[in-house]
Structures are given as structure tokens and as C-alpha cells.
Amino acid sequence: MDPVFMAEVLVRLLPPLGLTILLSVTALAIATPLGLALGAWRAELPDRHPAARLIDAWVFFVRGTPILIQIFAVYFILPKLGLQPPLFVMGVGALVGNSAGYQIEIGRAAVQSVPKGQWEAALALGFDRRASLRQFILPQAARRMVGPVMNELSQLIKASSVLSVITLFELHKAAEAISSANLRFSEVIVVEGFLYFVFIFGISLIAKAVERRLSAAGGLADAGSFAR
């Protein structure tokens, strides 16, 4: 272990870390409103509705295949359709498709976890379904979404490392390139791991603090999972 080399690597990995964060944050900013809205809508749709089937199929595909396959699908199929967007757009697109699929489930579970009595009370007070949903159910459901959505950001940072397979120079790809150019694998991996860890651990600390303040009961926050 050579501390000077590692310090050098740390400096060189900062711009790729920025790209990793930009990718994840952009994807989250698009996927969260999309996924949560679709999920809340899906909670209200009957199972046989065509839109419900479409949403279910999306969730089934996203949760039933590794993110690597979803990235390949974007990377190989778009050019076949005559589209050649920049890698960054493809990467964000793959992450959005993936994350929205998981967030649909977050939104749906949050809406469905609001006790039935809340619906009945709102309807009994003379609000129609739409108004009940907007004024009574969604505000309660929103609190339960906060924890899982913050967790989603660290999931996206982890998932964005897989974009290295389409030669997008985010943190993992850059680290890989530096280590194979210098043939010093362990030192670079330690620095790379340190950067990922600081970020993901930091986010999880913030998420825990926010959740404690909202004290969103309902047990929707899970330990998180490691694979997409």
C-alpha cells in the first residue's frame, strides 16, 4: 500500500464520483415522481384495467431481471431503432426504468397501507373518491414513502456502478481503468470502496434521521436489498 499513490487516485476519482452522483440524482429526480404517481394510481385501479396490466408488466420485468439485462436492453435495442443518444442519457434511462419500477411498488404499498377507516371517514364526510385520495389518503401515504425513497438513492448509487459495462466512465469504470493502467488493483479498489462507502453510509445516516423525525409508523422501511 502506497499512500502517495492512493492520494493521487483519490483526487483522480473525484470527477467520476461526481458523475456517479449526477447519474443517480438525475435518475432519482425523474423516477420518483413518475414511479410514486403511477404507484398511487395503480393502487386505485382494478386489476383488470389495461393500464394496471401495463404497470404490473413493467414492475414484473424490472423486479424479475437483473439491472444488467435492463442496461443491455437500452444499450443494444435503442441503436436498432435508429436512436443513438449519448451514453449518459442511456445510463439515466436505464436507471429511471429500473428505479421507477421499484418506486411504483413503494407508492402502491404506501397508499394501500393507509387504514380503510380513513377512506370510509372521508367518503362519509361527503368527499368524492378523488378528493378523499388527495386530501386524506395521500398526505398520510406520503410520510410512509419518505424512508423508502431515500433508501432508493443509495440503491441507485450502487446500481449505477453496473453502468460500467457500457463503458460509462462513472466511479467504478474509472477505478477499473486506473487500476488496469497501473496494474495496482488493491490500492485503487480500497480508494474506490472508501468513496462509495462514505456516500452511501452518509445517505443512510441522513435517511435514518429524517425517518425518526417523521416517525413514519407502518414499517415500510426495509433493510434494503443489495441487488437490482
Partner: peptide
């Protein structure tokens, strides 16, 4: 536990493959 949870699985795999032989 916290360290492994804070790493993408890809990094753990690369660590086992490239750093463990060291």
C-alpha cells in the same frame, strides 16, 4: 456489516477477484 452494505456488490466482487490474490 456497515462497510459491505455501503459498497456496490460489483466492488466487492472486484475486491475478491483482484485484491485477495495480493
Amino acid at each position: 456489516i456497515e462497510v459491505i452494505r455501503g459498497l456496490p456488490p460489483l466492488v466487492v466482487i472486484a475486491f475478491c477477484y483482484f485484491a485477495l490474490p495480493k
